[in-house]
Structures are given as C-alpha cells and as structure tokens.
Design a protein around this nucleic acid. Sequence first.
RNA 1: GGGCUCGUGGCUUAGCCUGGAUAGAGCGCCGGGCUUCUAACCCGGAUGUCGAGGGUUCAAAUCCCUCCGGGCCCGCCA
Length: 564
Amino acid sequence: MFLKFKDEVSSVLTKALKDAGFEADDLALDESPHADVSSSVAFRLAPKYKKSPKQICEAIHMHVKILPDSYIDRAEAAGPYINFFSSRAYLNETVLRVMLDRENFGNLNNTGKVILEHTSANPDGPLHIGHIRNSVIGDTLARILKRAGYDVETQYYINDMGRQIAVVVWGLMNFKFDAAKKKDHAIADVYIAANKTLVDEKEHSPEVDAIMKQYEVGDADTNRKFKDAIDTAMEGIEQTLDRMNIHHDKFVWESQFVRTGEVNRMMDRVKKLDNTIFKDGAFMVDLKEAGIEKTLVIQRSDGTSLYTTRDLTYHEWKATQCDRMIDILGADHKLISSQLKAVLRILGLQEPEVVIFEFVSLPEGSMSTRRGVFISADELLDEVKKAAYSEVSKKRPDTDEEFKQKVAEFVSIGAVRYDIVRVSPEKATTFDWAEAVDFEKQGAPFIQYAHARACSIIKNAKDEGITFEEFDAGILLEDQETALIKKLSVFENAIDKAARELKPNLIAIYARELADAFNQFYRYVPVISAEPEFQAARLALVECSRIVLANSLDTLGIVAPESM
RNA sequence: GGGCUCGUGGCUUAGCCUGGAUAGAGCGCCGGGCUUCUAACCCGGAUGUCGAGGGUUCAAAUCCCUCCGGGCCCGCCA
C-alpha cells in the first residue's frame, strides 16, 4: 500500500515539477514525522534556478494536481519542504488489503533464486552465542527475502576437511565419548580434551596429520570415522537450530568438491591466471590490483588444496543454481571473503553478496570452542527459559504447568532471537547474562503480548456475537486508529527495504513500532464495549493488526501466540 | 606496524551507505494510571558538546582528513 502511495506521490510530483518549469532527477522523497511522505527536492533545485527553496517549493505546490480517489489527500508547502498526506481511500484500502491478503500481506513480487548460506559452524561442538548471531541474522534474512518474493534456499556449509575435524576424529579414538550428554556437547568435550593433549604431548600431532591425509585421499575407513563424528555433532547442532525455529534446506560438505575433482580443476584454472605466482612449491594469487596486499595461497607445496580453494569451488557450484548468493559471515572472515570475491571476479565468476556481522564476546574476552571458553546456545536458551518461566508464573498464576512451560519456551526463543536481530550486524557486542534474561525491556515479549491481546479481543468479541463480516473502515477516525492503519500499510516498505539492504534489524524495529501503535489503540479505543456502530470496523482493525503482527513475528521467526 | 570496522543521554541502541524540518527508541530514574477487551500495558517528566579536532556545504550524527579509544584480521589454519 505504502509503495503504491509513494509511486503516486512520485508521479504527481514529477508532473508538478515539469509544469512549474523545473527539472530534477532525484525527487528526494522520504518518510517524515511531519508528513506521510516528504520531499526536499527544493533544496537541490535552489542553486540551479537561483531561487530560494521556499519559493521553489511554493511554485511546485501550485502545480500539484491530485486526482480523485487518489491515495494522496493533499500536498502542503511547508517552508522548503513539500509534504504529502495520505487519503481516506488509502487507509480504507489498507484495511481491506490486509483482510484479503492475510498471511501474504506485505509480500512483494521480486523474482529469482537466492542461495543463502548461514551458520556453517564447524561440527566440533555445540553452537555458541556467537554462532547463533549468524544463524538468527541468516534465518531472518531468508524469511525477509522469501516475503520479498525470492525463491530462497538456505545452505549450511560443513567444513569437514579442516584440521579441527581431524582432531575430533582422533579424539574419538582416544577419549571417552559421554553418551549421556547432548551429542554436540559430548563432541566438544572430546575435542577440548584432544586439543589439550595435543598441546601437552606434541608426539601425537603426526597422528592427526595422518588422519587428515587419509581423509584427503578418501580412505574408506577414515571416511566412515569422519562421517560418524560429523553426523554426531550435526545432530546436536540441528536440534539447537530446530529449537530456535531455524532449518536449512541443504547441508553441503566441503569434501564433495575434492572428491569430484572440481577442486583440482579450480586450482588448474587459477594457476593459468596472470596474477598467479609459483613460490616455494606453492601457487598463490597476487591480489594487489584488487586492492588486497596479502597474496592468497590456493595450492600447498604438497599439492593439496586449502579452505579457500574449496570455497572458490563451492561458490562456482552455487552460482550455477541461483541468481544471487548471499553469505553470512563473522568479522574474522572479512579479509578471506574479500580475497575470495577478488579471485572469483578475476575468473569471471559470480561473486556472493557478503553480510558481515561483528563478534559477540564475553566480558572476559573472546570465545573459543577449542579452549572450552564459550557459552553454548543451549545454555543461553535454558537460562532465558527459566527466567521466562518465573515471569509467567508471576503474571499468570491461574494457569497450569503445561501452559507455563509452553509460554516460557516461545517467549525465551523470541527474546533471544529478537535481542540478536534488533542490533545491526556491524556492531560488536559483549554478552551480559543480566541483560539476556531481562524481560522488562520492550523486546519480543512486548510484540507477542500485543498479538495475544488482539487474539483475546477477537475471541471475546466472538463470544459476544460481534463480527466483522460487514464493516465500514471509513469510520475509523480516531488518531490511534489512523496511526495504526498507517503503520500496517508500511509493512511492505519495511520488507522491501530490509530485503534491498539486507538489514534484518529493520523488521525488528517495525514489529516493535507496530506493537506500540496497537497498544496505544488498545488503551484508548474500546472495541467490545464501543457503540454498536463502531464495533465491526474496530474489530476488523484488531484482526488486521493481529495479521500484520503475526506476519512480522513470522518474518522474525518468532511464535505469534494466541495467549500468554 | 598495516588493513577493516565501531564510538550517539547512566546503560543498550535507531538513524550514517543515498547530507536537509526540534537526533528517534527501550532500560534505568522521577511522577501518574487497573470497577473498563490480558498492566509482559499506557501517559507525562528529567537526562545528548552524536569520541575529539579540522575541512567540504546554503545545510554534517551522516561526506573527507587527522587524532584518541574498543573490536576483528594480517598462516602453505579453517
């Protein structure tokens, strides 16, 4: 709705500009607290036409012609700004549109296949609070892009050729695997113990090297051991992701590119490049012309491949199956991903769009699975759930155990996801337990609560025999009502912008603002106890709010509860 | 040492790419509101040299430069 309104403003303003004798390639249209959409184009025109912005604005305003039944109600010249206000028709149609489109309201019609890779944590232990920043950003982005119309496939790239997995395999041969524990945690125990031993007793190091070598050549027995180790860790990782409402469409093993010979073909191609140099038996690419000082080794002197070489192949493979590739990566991958992109560019291959997120650290420093210094996602989820449980118990002492457990679960998942996604990815954060379990702040529970309230009104109205089968949206004239409808109408704009700029936090902000608008409506505008002539229309607005609240929460991967 | 990045009220942060109307919000703090659809709510108030300095511009939190502080990276690891 908003996008169509903005388009109308755009064409009306273009025409007014032309009629007033001005020419501008950028209309400088923007949302504004002073109007529904505002243009500061007069500033840009001022030097060119040697008039004050105010004069220009007035001249443009005089030529603004608004057609009947337009989404634009009126335009105003406010000093140097030209402000546009939406019409009643716009509000009424927004309500009808939501009722019609329901769970699809806000969806856009972009086309194309997107492969989005996220999480891709090494299968050497459980996901920790840094990994799930990747997962939540990636999953939310995938949901946003789906709503924007793209055909999205999510992939988890399993790095099974790295030394750390060989250490896990070696560890499994030498240490006890605690079958009583969740599998990824038991793998971490083995991994941590193995690392410690490898540091203390250097003589075991060649054993790990031998395992890696055997895996590289595809020894059947070693393959089985790797598969067992990785499947075990991944089972636990997937359980955690599943709990957070995150699922991957495909799990791609790094080794497959070695097995098919694609990695060798890739190395041969890169070797032929002018930028590639041969030094001390190894091949490396000089990326100075791409602005990167560091050369990139693509083949070791023993002839084997490296992580980046395989990643190059992985991206080439992905590109054959989609129109866009998006990678969600931690800040430690900044250099390596720009090197990867540079090589792909030189080879004439498609480059991925990379979303980098900064680190989550502990107050005492950075996390490390290898050293056993981390807070697992499972632990975080459990602690937050405990806090949520005590909150429900306090607030809903009348309810049974099953209800409290259920609410505590979806509130805690929502709170964790929301807390991660609300902060823009480029911000480095320090984890704080007190903050993590705090439910006073306006986060996911605030939005979920607004949704539950809407459901409650709808349920009570039904009991009272109030329906919205027939209503006139035109009588929704209270400030809180029009503000709420306008907020509903910009959902598609939030999706559009978030998809365009790959900024999932925009949806977190939108959802909170929508809940805010709904709560204000709730406080000031009665529905069930309203005069009969207002009941149906207001109930319809509650239903619309419920739908868009649910759509926003769904985009954030958070449960929209009927009661809490 | 070099590169990248962040620095906004006591705390957490939006806005920065694409410069424009009094820098928006939450927590905390102060004050008010449950005989009314779930108070995990609502209303009001105090709190900001937008890290510092310079520059560009009619206009800078936003662009450029320098400096300071935090983070990340700089391996024939991943």
